[in-house]
Amino acid sequence: MGLALTVEGLVVLGSDNRPILEVDSFALPRGALVGISGPSGAGKTTLLHAIAGLIQHAQGRVCWEEADLLNLGEDARTRFRADHIGMIFQDFLLFDELGPLANATLTAMFHPRARRAPLRKRAGDLLGQLGLPETPRVVGSFSGGERQRVAIARALAADAPILLADEPTASLHREAADRLIEDLVELARTRGTTLIAVSHDQWLLDRMDRVITVRDGRLASEGAA
């Protein structure tokens, strides 16, 4: 089951110490599917990174249930991400020289030994569900759609209750993007995963429970999709 999120008084500072993102507050229930939209440079990815606990210099509170990521130390935040957060990146960030299963089980390499076998099993199942059966091919030879599905399998293989996606369909043509959105939404709903996706893709945003719009480093609006 996904986790609930509460963000309060979040201020992210840029390299010149000026605020680049200011959020008064918002909250998401467990298992919510949320889109973040807005013009380029508005601060969408910065918000996603703050929610993931990737930003070191920020003020306020970003609480996943009881865990306030901004008040955790670096190692604790890393552990939180390993245990609770799966991420999908715009241009996949796969290792082209490895096969789909090796990419999907990347996190197994640093998870405790006991978690590796179940993680590998889940990754194999997910790849099968996403239409990528076992193959000796390396992902460098895959199409964009196939690569993004490997990235989804990687994000979900650890059975994380939170899934964060940064422009997951931006590198895909329409048909592949549509299929990916279907897969992503179905998997998140089936598992009760809290999904937060930064996107310009209206088709994706239309499938979300809520959409948060960011403009000039502030939340401009929040509402149902």
Partner: peptide, 16 residues
Amino acid sequence: QRQTAMLRALGAPRRF
């Protein structure tokens, strides 16, 4: 460095 940052984002410890 993008891949190593991705590993860190996915929860890989610095030591890894």
